[in-house]
Write a protein that binds this DNA or RNA. Structure first.
Lengths: 260, 260
DNA sequence: AGATATGTTGCAAAATACGGCAAATTACCC
DNA sequence: GGGTAATTTGCCGTATTTTGCAACATATCT
């Protein structure tokens, strides 16, 4: 209207400016933006909503911040469903014998598995998880091999090329692998391409591989299938999944193991 | 009330700042934060509670501290001579600039260096130490690359062939390397063949390499010379070594840097 | 024990989010 | 150029969230 200075271009001009400010400051406020553009708060809110739908920022009360698919912190995730995870850990540890080479994926459920291994002797453990490596290297008579590589700060574990290559160098007796969800058609899926590939290689590297997923993951949809998922020996969980999902998975190969 | 000019503090913005300060100082106080943000103590308390629920910090009376699960042996060693080590850490961090690639060896003195890096941005850090990797991967805008390999349970760090090879893949701006002792003839020495070789490669991989040794190591005799030790740019320590030792070292190449 | 500082809770005020609806602008067709 | 449909934008009322205040319980210090 009366502003006329640069109101010539419409929404896209605002969007560009918003993203610019966001990149500069880390966050933007609706009040400041509406004052700057001489438009109403609702308009800015709609702009932000559009940008949020496109995944270019994250909405918060009063404005927006850089999009961050922040999974909850590891320490908190470890406590959610901790009873179920402990049960899964015990069941998993029951499959391990003294002297085995064990591959343990990153994640909170696998951390519970690691904690349950304390009674065993002469294990060789490979893991990409900093937390698990630290935990187990303090156990006497356990040899730990850390899979190196770039650290994902959310998982606090190595991901990427170096970790992938390192996995291939091991002959593993038994692997415990996490996942992002168990899809309705009975497949374990993951959040990222890297993660899916890494887990796939873990399965391939192990004599026997077990997924460990707590029941909150049932039916959850995450974008990527884990290749060669069906080579896994089984899925260890804390409650029976819906019949349709469980049967679909068992038909593809992996056994279903419900820990109590 | 409405602080017109001041960029209105979105709740998540406060959270970011709180975490930043926490990482920098190790602890934050409610009084200081409420003064800084111009909000009431209750608001800060609610912020801290949320962050604590997410496991991102630990609450204490009057504020919050870094959440530290359980780290026995190593952290205990880190306490010894901690004042000296902190000084060394600060001096070392002063040599680092935003955006550098930093290689940090395992050990308690190097851990102090890692802790002192918190103010810097866009660092890429390589380390064989589980503890340092875990610490720094929680820092925003810091990329961590864990050197993989078999974990030495005393050092809680990767040693051996895999770590040696991984070091060679990096182009490093600056490296901070530990050692077992500073021998009477002015050379840094180590306990094990593997350790000496690993440290040697770290020196070779870096544009500039600095040893970090606290003064308790002066004159200590450990069995193995660190090959190519003289390529290091300097030795950072907390007190001047005996003149004979210091002069012997400086003649071989490395400068002597005494932190205060 | 007394004094000071901190934590906790309930409640009210302010700011913000969300939906519906009308006005203004733009695009489009004839 | 006129007219109509579609989109954008602003305004309003209500629901939700956030924040500050006050009163009281608890902890810490001297």
């Amino acid at each position: 209207m009366t502003d006329a200075s640069d109101s010539r271009a419409l929404a896209p001009r605002r969007h560009d400016e918003i993203l610019k400010r966001l990149a500069a400051d880390g966050s933007v406020s609706i009040a400041a933006l509406s004052a700057f553009f001489n438009v109403s708060r609702e308009t800015i809110r709609r702009d932000l909503k559009q940008l949020a739908d496109r995944g270019q920022l994250g909405l918060v009360h009063g404005g927006a911040t850089l999009f961050e698919p922040t999974e909850p912190a590891l320490t908190q995730r470890a406590q959610e469903n901790s009873l179920a995870k402990a049960a899964i850990g015990r069941a998993a540890a029951g499959l391990v014998r003294d002297g085995m080479v064990v591959l343990i994926d990153s994640g909170t459920t696998t951390l519970a598995v690691a904690q349950a291994l304390s009674g065993l002797k002469n294990l060789t453990v490979c893991t990409p998880s900093l937390t698990i490596a630290l935990l187990l290297c303090r156990q006497p008579s356990t040899r730990v091999h850390m899979l190196g590589g770039e650290i994902d700060s959310g998982e606090e574990a190595a991901v990427g090329i170096d970790a992938l290559e390192a996995i291939g160098r091991f002959r593993v007796d038994i692997a415990f692998v996490g996942g992002g969800g168990l899809s309705p058609d009975g497949e374990v899926t993951d959040f990222t391409r890297n993660g899916a590939e890494q887990r796939s290689r873990m399965i391939a590297a192990a004599e026997r591989a077990y997924f460990v997923l707590d029941s909150s993951k049932f039916g959850r949809l995450t974008p990527l299938r884990i290749p060669r998922f069906e080579l896994a020996a089984g899925l260890i969980t804390d409650a029976a999944p819906p019949a349709a999902i469980g049967e679909a998975m068992v038909r593809k190969g992996p056994k279903l193991i419900v820990a109590t």
